[in-house]
Design a binder for these strands. Structure first.
Lengths: 262, 262
DNA sequence: CGATGGCTTGAGGGTATTCAAGTGACGTGG
DNA sequence: CCACGTCACTTGAATACCCTCAAGCCATCG
């Protein structure tokens, strides 16, 4: 029986300030700089250094809006800690959560190569620290060096596939299956066997991330409890048998288990 | 009162062979070559010429599978006529339709920059003519010329936004609203006012494209009939008031009317 | 003429949402 | 220490929505 320790454990520190977070547990993961991000592996080191010099550190409390749909895309972001919600909101006030990102994830960079305006909105959902970088240099670098452009191409192409999977999940999986799938993606670190994990953020937020209401999420969890022997206590979830859960959730899905990327 | 004439009118010729289609009505739209596609505007004309020389013409009857998920991505396609379904299928036989493409659309090109394998499947849904081009030269060209790489970047980034919208539509719009939205995108040629249009392909297929069953589509249509004064007769739909339909469908959506791209 | 395929319609059931009430943990303040 | 409010979450009942299954309609085609 193992316990997953990872970025989302931060939730337990949510009363700390962003600075305190950085100075306490965050060192365990190391600071995320551009060098640590896959996309930038093939970039010119000199360029990365120059871009790092233009980094702004944004320590945002829960609920801070980083940018809105249609804003001019002047910056892209890399998350150091905390969680950021990527969403779109409708005329009558509803919102659709597209993704929830954390440590090491990048966002806002796609707009550079399209309209130059963000096509989605972004908001922190836990106290979070991000690094903001200006878009212009990245765009220029992609225009200057093929390797850079190709890295971005690979990155965005991968995002496409991810979104296709997302559409599939929301279309054919029912609530309990989507939840199970979500849990399995969290414990992809472990190969098999029993595992205890902590939900990374608020249940209502997970619900939104999975395209359902909070009540439905709650009922879905208890259904998993009775159907595949999950044990839930607060934010802690015990999965006795990953295989059984995978059979339950992934039979309706085109992806082989485990559902590799998140 | 105007009638939309466009690619989907081909449906009325579905008894013709693909060759007959090309030799009859298709000239009206002109042949779609790489030059006519936005992505390739900034490509080197010499390269385009060389790539055109490697074009294979594929005349496929309805139902022909062009490639499957996980196949090695050796070709990308440009549709000359007919309709092609992009989908994923699950272990237990269900399928999720991600998009349905026609005249002038390109598909299969994203895999080049990611894993080199198709992440989706593609199948013709009406007798269709496509041009197939080898992927390798396109990839090499993107590696050689920045302009080419940047064009691809813009193209794929745009696809991202499209998929975000798709997720939004399927998440918050109900069946009738999704249908209305679909109809409005068809008549985006006209600014306002009454319009008569023909459904581009089978109703069951539209249903799949919108993430619902055929029966639900049928009921959704009749609901639009009573709610916003739509008139349906077979495959022909009369919209008396686009504004009213837009109010009905787009209030639950973050996109301004008209929902620009398809 | 019967068979077929595309579409519609009805009945029934399941799933998710809404609205409302209730629980429990936690922090605050008396 | 306890009363209180807040917040996250759960639970229940009623409803809306969509799906399934089945039957029927209608145009087309052999």
């Amino acid at each position: 029986m193992t316990t997953v320790k990872a970025g989302w454990e931060k939730r337990d520190m949510k009363t700390l300030t962003a600075r305190e977070q950085r100075e306490s547990g965050e060192h365990a993961q190391g600071r995320v700089l551009l060098n640590d991000i896959d996309v930038f592996l093939d970039f010119d080191p000199g360029f990365i250094t120059k871009l790092e010099a233009q980094r702004r550190i944004i320590e945002a409390p829960k609920g801070k809006v980083l940018f809105m749909h249609d804003d001019l895309a002047d910056s892209f972001y890399v998350i150091q800690s905390g969680w950021v919600k990527i969403f779109r909101e409708t005329l009558d006030g509803d919102e659709v959560v597209l993704d929830i990102l954390t440590h090491g994830h990048m966002f806002g960079e796609t707009a550079i190569f399209d309209t130059g305006r963000y096509s989605v909105s972004a908001q922190t959902v836990e106290n979070a620290v991000q690094y903001a970088y200006p878009c212009a240099p990245l765009k220029e670098e992609a225009e200057r060096r093929q390797d850079s452009a190709l890295s971005m191409l690979r990155h965005i192409a991968r995002g496409q596939v991810h979104k296709d999977k997302e559409i599939e999940h929301r279309t054919i999986q029912n609530a309990a299956q989507r939840i199970g799938c979500f849990l399995l993606r969290i414990c992809r670190i472990e190969k098999q066997g029993p595992i205890v994990l902590h939900l990374p953020y608020d249940k209502a937020l997970i619900a939104g991330r999975l395209g359902m209401k909070a009540e439905t999420f709650s009922r879905g969890l208890s259904r998993l409890q009775s159907d595949v022997g999950l044990k839930i206590q607060g934010a802690s979830v015990e999965i006795r048998n990953q295989k059984e859960l995978a059979d339950y959730t992934c039979s309706a899905c085109s992806n082989m288990f485990p559902c590799e990327d998140e």
